[in-house]
Design a protein around this nucleic acid. Structure first.
Lengths: 352, 352
DNA sequence: ATGAAAGCGCTAACAC
DNA sequence: GTGTTAGCGCTTTCAT
């Protein structure tokens, strides 16, 4: 470092503005000159100073991404997808972990505002008002949460629940429980809603709401006894972690999965394939959500004049992955069922 | 945005340099003035432009962290620790995922050089020469890899292996296998070395090297049959993922863990507590490694004149976590052993 | 097609 | 203790 545009200009025998042009808008510079500049750049290993560029242009070619917890594989994937796409577009990504703290989200987003061109807010926990304020100060794209008037990208939570229910119903289950996530979770609300709609449409089924649980292993363990008490033969969990907790507790209680009770998760976290039996779950395209988020955000920063009427929310579909943790309802399988019917087949969310 | 230091100066009735001082070095400014400035800042919601600051000072208050794969929980934790510490110190963190590609590491690190004050290179796969070149161009701190002349932070791989061996030996195992990681892995090399040293010191034991395996579930599954063929009653895996793969294969082969064979992992990844039986593993302080990495890096950037003779490598100790996947050697437990002796006790690495 | 020059917003001497 | 001023490295009119 230390080599500036002046050094290049000197060596190439041109002015600094020509160097600048030759790099940013080559078509404005005569071929011969362009080549001399390129040579000088090469020779000196010159790299424009991002700070100077950003001071001059007002754009930093940097975006921010704030997540509740980068250790959560769900967000790690989104970050990975976002980072890859951003880098490909010549943008750097500043990462910020809010530690699940709603107040810190706003604080971070505000601090970031000065140094980035836009922000990806993943599963923000903060209030609607705060979100609106943040969005009024800078380009903001919500991921995994929607809000009227703000750009957002979400998963199709309704189909996720629906397709999972269809699956267990097809296996003959008629008493099915839902182990919900945190009450404050936006996606939980959407899924619960879908669960209830399903219940209305299928009055013959017993659909039981077990309540809210922490989206962790312990949350699942906690939910387990409720599930047993409910008499359900299949339990659909808010996420894979809760599902794994259920698996654990059922084992402790001497219940076999899926012979005695079926369990389904959601998210297709790596863990879901590693436990035994492997979890039936819904794969949500997390990497894609990250890259699509960057695309949408950059589009926002590039086209300043967008009307509020633009279509602002996009939903990404998930797909059911059937594995060993779900099986025929007990009364159908005739009791003993020895082997786990493991299948790694995948099928897309057909509904909707 | 858009409010500059000039606006603040005008409102506070002082010059811009006073504003600058009042913010950066309050002690150089009269209390009364300081307060007027603070008020104006407050009123306008003024935030200094990082670009301007960085152009002027030559420091960006930003650091870069490059990891082979952010989806790998091992790195996610390091990033989390680093991010938290950096943010606390007023630094932003640019994240870059090299996708396990050694050539991309260098490319990224070079590109980053212009916009950050220093770089954290996590488990870099690239060559010694490339590493040296990068370090000559900017402050670089290696994480999970050491190299003479470069600053680095590593785990105490030797103790990790040693303490695990001590553990299984104490359980009566005499034929113990090591399922190694990728041959190119620096930590694998260190662990293998420790394994061999242990073998030399304990000629009474049969310590078997199973070879190199991919640090994944499949790697473990692949290693499983080799382990069985070796006649070992305990297998120490390079990491938790391989250990989980072993668990899976042993179950397929009808072997009970730990009654028939013990398995130990390394890293204490979240997964290790979620599988069944839960894995005995070595907890490596990953969050701490991230934060310590930032500390060390910032120290480097702050004290330019450090001699090569400085102590440049620090080792962080791990601690053995005994769970259900390890148990008494088969010939000792008398065969049937019904329950898994699960214990979540933790004990520090005593040796060394 | 190219050059001169005016900023971008801030810091850091240097005066007073 | 505070103000003046000269950059930091680049982009971008505006001339030529």
């Amino acid at each position: 470092m230390g080599t500036t545009i002046h050094d290049v200009a000197k060596i190439a025998g041109v002015s600094i503005s020509t160097v600048s042009r030759a790099i940013a808008n080559p078509e404005l510079v005569a071929i011969a000159t362009r080549e001399r500049v390129a040579l000088a750049v090469q020779k000196l290993g010159y790299r424009p100073s991002p700070a100077a560029q950003s001071l001059s242009t007002g754009r930093s070619r940097t975006i921010g991404i704030v997540v509740p917890d980068i250790e959560n594989p769900f967000f790690a994937s989104i970050v990975k997808g976002a980072q890859a796409r951003a880098r490909a577009a010549g943008y750097a990504v500043i990462i910020a972990d809010s530690d699940e703290d709603a107040s810190r989200e706003a604080e971070i987003a505000t601090a970031l505002a000065t140094q980035v061109d836009g922000i990806l807010l993943c599963s923000p926990r903060c209030s609607v008002e705060v979100l609106r304020t943040l969005a009024s100060q800078q380009p903001v794209l919500l991921i995994n949460r929607a809000l009227a008037g703000l750009h957002s990208l979400t998963f199709d939570n309704a189909s996720a629940i629906q397709v999972t229910l269809d699956h267990v119903v097809a296996l003959g289950h008629t008493t099915i429980a839902l182990a919900g996530g945190p009450p404050s979770s936006w996606s939980h609300a959407r899924r619960l809603e879908a669960f209830r709609i399903y219940a209305h449409r299928h009055p013959d089924l017993q659909l039981i709401e077990l309540g809210n649980f922490a989206p962790t292993l312990d949350g699942g363990i906690h939910a387990g006894d409720h599930a047993i008490a409910s008499g359900a033969t299949a339990v659909i969990a808010f996420n894979d972690l809760i599902a794994v907790g259920l698996l654990d507790l059922f084992r402790q209680r001497g219940l076999r999965v899926p012979e005695d009770i079926s369990v389904a998760g959601c998210d297709n976290t790596p863990i879901s394939a590693l436990v035994w039996p492997a979890l039936t779950t819904v794969d949500l395209p997390r990497l894609q959500m990250g890259s699509a988020g960057v695309d949408a955000l950059l589009e926002m920063t590039d086209s300043p004049g967008r009307t509020v009427a633009d279509q602002r929310n996009h939903e990404l579909p998930g797909s059911l992955i059937v594995r060993g943790s779900t099986g025929p309802a007990p009364h159908l399988s005739g009791g003993s069922g020895l082997g786990a019917r493991r299948s790694d087949s995948m099928r897309p969310v057909g509904k909707k």
